[in-house]
Simulated scan of single mutants.
Amino acid sequence: MNMNDFKERKKKILQVVIRHYVRTARPAASGMIVRDYDFPFSSATVRNVLAELEEEGYLTHPYTSAGRIPTDKGYRFYVDRLMEAQKLTQEEERHIAREYRAKRRGLEEVMRQTSKMLSLISHQAGFILTPTLDRNFLKHIELVALGGKRILAVLVIQAGLIRHKTIQLNYDLKRSQLYRISKILNEKLSGLPLSQMREEMNRIIEQESNKYLGLLQTAKGLIGQAFTSEESEIYLEGSANILASVKEDLYDYAGVGSVFRAIEEKRIILDIVRRLVQSEGVKVLIGKENLYPELKDFSVVSSTYKSGNRVVGALGIIGPKRMEYPKMVALVDFVAKVVNNILNSEGG
C-alpha cells in the first residue's frame, strides 16, 4: 500500500493492535479495540479497517474466529513509522553505569558484563561480538615468568582493557631477559595498532645491531605466540529468557526449539551479527529479515560500537517478535554508548 494512502485511522488501529499484542500476547478484535482503547469509531468500522490491514499484509489472524496479530510487515511499519522514541529511566541508566564501574576492566569482563546486562534488563538473550585484537592499539606489554618454562604475556590495550595468555616455551628465560624484552617491546611498539606489531618487529630486527638480535628474535617469537590475530567471538547470556517469553505466546512457541539450537551453536548468531557490523547505528531485524529460518519468529535489536573512529563490534538482544521495541532500542543504544566510552576513555 502506498504510504500516502495509509490513512491516520489505519495507523492508529495498527499501532493499537501491535501494542495490545506485545502487552498481552493475545489477538486484538474490533470490539475490544473500541471498548478498551476508547476509539471514536464503531466496531464495524474498526472491523473493516482490520480486514483492510490484513489484506495489505500488515496483520494476520491465527485462526478463523480470532482477532488480528501483526505480521513481519506490520512490525516493520511500526518500528519505522509509528514507534515513539523512548529513553531508559534514570535509575536504569545509573544501574548500568554502577555495574560497569564495579567490575574490572579486563576485555573479557567487559564483554561478559555487557551480554549479562542486556539480558537482565531486556529479559531476552543479550549478546556482544568481541573486537579482534588486531583492530586495537597497544598501550603496554608485560611478560611474567611463571616457572616451568611458562610465561604469562599480558597485553594492555585501549582504555586499560587487558588480554593475557600463558605461553609454554621449550627453553628457559631469566627474569632479567624478560624484563629487557618487555622494555624493548614497550619502547618500540607502544601506540601501534596490534596488526602492525609483527611487521614493525621485522623492521626493528633488520636495523638493530647483533648485540640485541637474539633478544629481538625471542621477542618476535613471543609476540607471535601470545597475540596472534583472532577471530571475533560472541558472548551470549540469557537464552532461557527466550523460553520464558515465548511460553506466553502460543503462536510463536513452535519456533523456540530452532532458536535454541541457533543460540547453542552460535554460528548463525555470529554470522548475523558480523553482517550488522558492516553499518553503524541501531538496527532492528524482524522475523524473516534475519535470513535464517531458525530465527523467523524472532527479532534482533543491535547496535555497533567503536574503538576510536572505527566500528569494531556489535551488541544487542534477541527475542520474540512480540517485544517492546521502543524499550529494546533505547537499551541497546545506551549500552552501546557506555561500551564506546569504556573503549575510548583516556587512560582506562
Rank of each mutant, 00 (worst) to 15 (best):
N4P: 03
L178M: 15
K321Q: 08
E92N: 02
I223G: 13
L194C: 14
I13C: 05
S42R: 07
P293A: 02
L138V: 15
E93T: 10
V22W: 03
S195I: 12
E346G: 01
I167T: 04
L291A: 08
G221E: 15
K288M: 03
N170H: 14
K288S: 12
N290I: 03
Q196N: 10
N170S: 15
K211D: 14
A240D: 10
M1H: 13
V79T: 02
G316W: 10
F39S: 05
A336R: 05
L107W: 00
L185F: 10
H140F: 13
S176N: 15
Y78I: 09
G257C: 00
H140S: 11
D72V: 05
K306E: 08
Q15Y: 03
Y63M: 08
G313M: 04
L222M: 07
G74K: 01
E55N: 09
I162E: 11
T60V: 05
E54S: 12
P70K: 00
D134G: 06
N340L: 10
D297A: 08
R19L: 11
A240C: 00
N210I: 09
S65I: 04
A226T: 07
I128Y: 03
V284H: 04
L291K: 06
S258Q: 08
G287S: 02
Y179M: 10
S209N: 13
V110W: 01
S279N: 06
V259P: 00
M3F: 09
G147S: 13
F39E: 13
S232G: 07
V256A: 09
I204F: 14
N186I: 05
Q86F: 02
Q177P: 07
R9W: 08
M197E: 14
V329Q: 05
L14P: 00
G313A: 08
L169Y: 10
S182H: 07
I33P: 00
K11N: 02
S345F: 06
R76C: 02
I286W: 05
S43R: 15
L243W: 02
A29F: 09
E280K: 09
H61K: 14
L152T: 04
E248I: 02
V339Y: 12
N309D: 13
L50F: 13
L178H: 13
V277S: 00
